[in-house]
């Protein structure tokens, strides 16, 4: 494939401008990409004039030019995502939970770099990239910092599961940091899933099997040796379907799964119609009814719904 100069090539310029469109301004890179690709997919034939104006060959139909534009969009998203990941790892992720989960050790210097590599590797894989979209959105947004301290303060189900069942002695801020790490590590679980093994629309969010995760943990661990495998496992195990009463998934992983799913549904500032409930309340309420189907912890969703109601979020 010929190298394309992103500045001079009209297709690449178009893709960059599209990714910088005002309608997408508030979204993270992968959600911008998702929006742009959705419009291409849904309106392919009507975009022939657009492709023509970009100097593309349309005599054989719209699919080839659409594929070229899609590639340019992905390339633009990759460039934007690099900056987002850097910003996340440097200012939003403090790894403050490290000593609690690695026998008192602080996070090594290269830990962030290893995590960055893991995330970048996920970004290059189609299924893991889809999972990364929700994870990055959740990690960049304020949902983790909004809900987890509140859940901690209430000292109800979420608090009990983390502090007494999972036996983690973490402050609220450290727990937020840990959940942020979990959502960022989570997409690595899909690195060995081939496209087609999960339904397209659920790519990156379908529950995985415990045996499979056990098999891939060592390989993932070897690419991020600074992190204890137990810590990486928390991220990977957030992809397991939670079974109530079976305690098969750690509380922090369950919380991470919920946040990653919520991140997937985060969009530009939604104008809430008069008569409608808030986006957070609506989402938590729907998901707590579908918790079993999605493999999420229904009681955690109940509590998060209550927190959203009480705070008017």
């Amino acid at each position: 494939m010929r190298a394309v100069d992103p500045v001079s090539d009209p297709v690449s310029r178009f893709a960059m401008r599209l990714m910088e469109a005002p309608a997408l301004r508030a979204l993270p890179a992968l959600q911008k990409e998702e929006q742009a690709l959705n419009v291409l997919r849904s309106n392919g034939p009507q975009l022939v004039p657009v492709f023509t104006s970009l100097g593309m060959e349309v005599s054989r139909g719209w699919r080839e030019p659409a594929a070229l534009v899609s590639r340019a969009i992905r390339a633009a998203a990759d460039r934007m995502m690099e900056a987002e990941i850097s910003e996340l790892l440097s200012s939003r992720l403090e790894l403050s939970f490290f000593p609690v989960l690695s026998e008192g050790r602080s996070a090594p210097e290269r830990a962030r770099e290893e995590l960055r590599s893991l995330i970048s590797r996920a970004a290059r894989h189609p299924v893991a990239r889809s999972a990364l979209s929700g994870s990055l959105a959740a990690a960049r947004s304020d949902i983790i910092d909004k809900y987890i301290p509140q859940a901690f303060e209430r000292k109800k189900y979420v608090y009990v599961e983390i502090s007494r069942v999972q036996r983690l002695s973490l402050a609220a801020a450290q727990l937020c940091d840990l959940v942020r790490f979990i959502v960022l590590a989570r997409p690595a679980a899909y690195l060995f899933i081939a496209t087609g093994e999960t339904q397209d629309r659920e790519a990156g969010y379908s529950p995985l099997q415990e045996q499979y995760l056990t098999k891939i943990l060592a390989g993932i661990g070897s690419s991020a040796p600074s992190f204890p495998q137990t810590l990486l496992a928390l991220g990977l195990r957030s992809t397991l379907a939670y079974q109530p009463g079976a305690s098969n998934v750690e509380a922090t992983s369950r919380l991470g799964a919920i946040m990653a799913h919520r991140g997937r549904a985060l969009g530009p500032a939604v104008v809430v119609d008069r008569g409608a409930d808030s986006p957070d309340k609506s989402w938590f309420n729907v998901q707590r009814r579908n918790a079993r189907w999605r493999g999420l912890d229904g009681r955690m969703l109940d509590e998060l719904y209550t927190i959203a109601s009480e705070n008017g979020w």
């Binding site: 599209l18 979204l27 997937r264 969009g267």
Partner: peptide
């Protein structure tokens, strides 16, 4: 559960 659509064909 995906994010609400922000982009329209007219934008392209």
């Amino acid at each position: 559960t995906a994010a609400p659509a922000a982009l329209k064909i007219e934008d392209l």
